[in-house]
Design a protein around this nucleic acid. Structure first.
Length: 387
DNA sequence: TCTGGGGTCCTAGGACCC
DNA sequence: TCTGGGGTCCTAGGACCC
């Protein structure tokens, strides 16, 4: 089952501010700046406004009574936690995929609650009771079908697609709804005269792979037949932390860029420490005029969550020769490559001084990986890289 | 129209190792 | 003098998603 809160940010604002109900509400960048719409209410969508649309374009389309708001992420995250807690009462296996979306594994729940439609109705009622918001729910035999089912009727929808209905459900949909089919892939399929999922299904696999590449071609071929991953993993962890800013106006002053990198490094370090993570890969991202994006990354010998170390690594990646003096639109810093599985250096060292104690296979594999990467004596020496 | 910020996953070449 | 095969890591870029 896939659960998707309707116009999440805008719906929270309308819930909390009754005068805004019934009006177009846009949450995102301030009008007059270079930024985009994050979410807008259904009243605003009637004017063709969508997520990711430049705010200037939204202002052009929307009437004067429109309410423009900056996001209150802390509040939205709190509402998200309440929603996820309510979902946890429906199924023990919940995978949060974003602030306003989750997959639930319904295996074994029919006997406890009832048929899929009853589980879906109960879920919507539970969310409404917990936070006073509407959600669209889709139920299907795998993640793809559940997600497409939740998109099928919005807002406040509930769609159940049984296994034997999958192909009938899929065939008439525009191919663009398939996961991983974005602007580039769409353009190629358009060129081949493809319009619907049924059209995709009529193309031979070899042709799809020639058109889209081996990987994407194979993936689209399977999805068009309703074949997709059906696992729900509640333990998925984030793999990177990053912070970036787009300047109000392009910046060429290296001192200003350095300050921005320092700020981003501090934010990333703070979040990493808050989550108890330390990473070895530091990435500097830069976007130049006109919208030319580069990344540079560096792998450290020892995992870090230190603002200073993150900053020094990030700033050392600033390519003075290529970028100094050029107009910079955006700059940011990322941290990834967590140490081991649980990221716990003390565990590794404990294990190293007590080699005969029973250990999990997981930890053994981690230790082996550390030895392979850093050399046999690394655990004693303190993780200095091999030459 | 002129493009945010936070992410994930994939590809591909070169280094390096066995 | 010519020259392997496989595997993994590192790095940069790109497509895509919410």
């Amino acid at each position: 089952m896939h659960v998707d809160l309707d116009a999440f940010y805008a719906a929270i604002e309308q819930r909390d501010h009754p005068p805004w109900r019934g009006l177009p509400v846009v949450v995102g960048a301030a009008p007059g700046t270079r930024g985009v719409v994050a979410t807008c209410s259904y009243e605003a969508r009637r004017y063709g406004v969508r997520s990711a649309m430049p705010i200037a374009e939204a202002v052009r389309r929307l009437p004067p009574e429109t309410v423009y708001l900056r996001p209150r992420m802390g509040d939205y995250a709190a509402v998200s936690r309440q929603v996820m807690a309510a979902l946890g009462d429906i199924s023990p296996v919940v995978e949060k995929v974003s602030i306003d979306e989750a997959f639930l594994d319904l295996s074994g729940l029919a006997g406890l609650i009832g048929p899929p439609a009853a589980i879906g109705a109960l879920t919507k009622a539970a969310i409404r009771a917990a936070v006073g918001l509407s959600a669209s729910v889709g139920i299907g035999p795998n993640r793809l079908i559940a997600k497409l089912a939740s998109e099928h009727r919005k807002p406040d929808g509930l769609t159940v697609v049984h296994p034997e209905q999958v192909q009938t459900f899929l065939d008439p949909l525009p191919f663009r709804v398939l996961r991983g089919v974005g602007a580039k892939t769409s353009a190629r399929l358009d060129g081949a005269g493809v319009k619907t999922v049924a059209d995709v299904r009529r193309l031979p696999l070899v042709e799809l792979r020639r058109l889209l590449g081996a990987r994407v071609g194979a993936e689209v071929h399977l999805q068009a037949r309703g074949i997709a991953d059906d696992r729900v993993d509640p333990a998925r962890e984030r793999k990177s932390i990053s912070k970036e800013t787009t300047f109000p106006e392009d910046v060429a002053d290296v001192a200003v860029l350095r300050d921005a990198v320092l700020w981003a490094a501090q934010e990333v370090g703070f979040l990493a420490r808050q989550e108890g993570r330390a990473g070895v890969v530091v990435t500097l991202k830069i976007r130049l005029r006109p919208f030319e994006t580069h990344t540079r990354s560096r792998t450290l010998a020892v995992p870090t969550a230190s603002d200073g170390e993150i900053f020094r690594a990030a700033w050392s990646l600033f390519d003075v020769h290529r970028w100094a003096g050029r107009s910079v639109r955006l700059i940011g810093v990322g941290l990834s490559g967590w140490a081991g599985r649980q990221g716990s250096q003390p565990d590794l060292l404990d294990a190293a001084v007590e080699p005969t104690s029973p250990r999990s296979r997981r930890l053994d594999e981690t230790l082996d990986a550390v030895r392979r990467r850093f050399g046999d004596g690394a655990l004693q020496r303190g993780l200095r890289p091999r030459r």
